[in-house]
């Protein structure tokens, strides 16, 4: 039980997917202007990564390993993730209009989010079983959401401030990321 909780804490905070592993940087820098939109994206990411890590784990254990096709994992995972995101999108569109409107536009964007493929591959590398994979996926996505919402919070605050000309645009966002990454290094003590 403690090892399962440790997986969640370790993936969410200690090895934060954005600030420590640099996965999903594009959306981390691009979609972090407002807390509201980044929280919606975070919700969509939690949803997709949790499901996709379950599916990828099942596929790997029950299809790829018995058939000795483990070297095909990259191809299989990326196709499964793309198809899965499409299916989730269609499913939400038909069943829950409100959720679709909140998360819908972010879902296709997530296919290219390297965090999704990254989690699936890391789970396999670590030899996690189904439950551990789902928890690792969930923890990773929570870590992503925490990071992007925090960054959006900072960006909303500095939006009005006067920033030196060379720092305007991307550099100031990266500077926030530097400070956040330093802060998150402190979580290293938890392991």
């Amino acid at each position: 039980m403690t090892s399962l909780i440790m997986i969640v804490i370790s993936t969410a905070l200690i090895n934060n997917v954005v600030l420590n592993q640099f996965l999903g940087i594009c959306s981390f820098l691009g979609v972090s202007r407002q807390i509201k939109t980044s929280a919606s994206l975070g919700g969509a990411v939690i949803f997709v990564i949790t499901i996709s890590s379950a599916v990828a784990s099942l596929l790997y254990d029950f299809v790829l390993v018995p058939l000795h096709l483990t070297y095909l994992k990259t191809i299989v995972f990326i196709l499964v993730i793309a198809a899965l995101v499409q299916m989730v999108e269609m499913f939400l569109k038909k069943t829950s209009r409100a959720v679709y409107q909140a998360l819908g536009i972010y879902l296709p964007l997530i296919t290219t989010n390297c965090a999704v493929l990254g989690v699936a591959l890391t789970n396999v590398q670590n030899g996690y079983n189904l439950l551990e994979s789902v928890l690792a996926g969930f923890g990773t996505a929570v870590g992503y959401t925490v990071a992007i919402v925090l960054l959006a919070g900072i960006r909303e605050r500095i939006d009005e401030d006067v920033i030196p000309a060379p720092l305007r645009g991307a550099p100031i966002v990266l500077l926030c990321a530097v400070l956040m990454a330093i802060a998150f290094m402190g979580f290293g003590g938890l392991s």
Partner: peptide, 19 residues
Amino acid sequence: IKAPGAFLVLMIIIMIMNA
């Protein structure tokens, strides 16, 4: 060579390019 350094170096490079 730790994680924050990556963001920092990229930030400095873009900052110089901006300048």
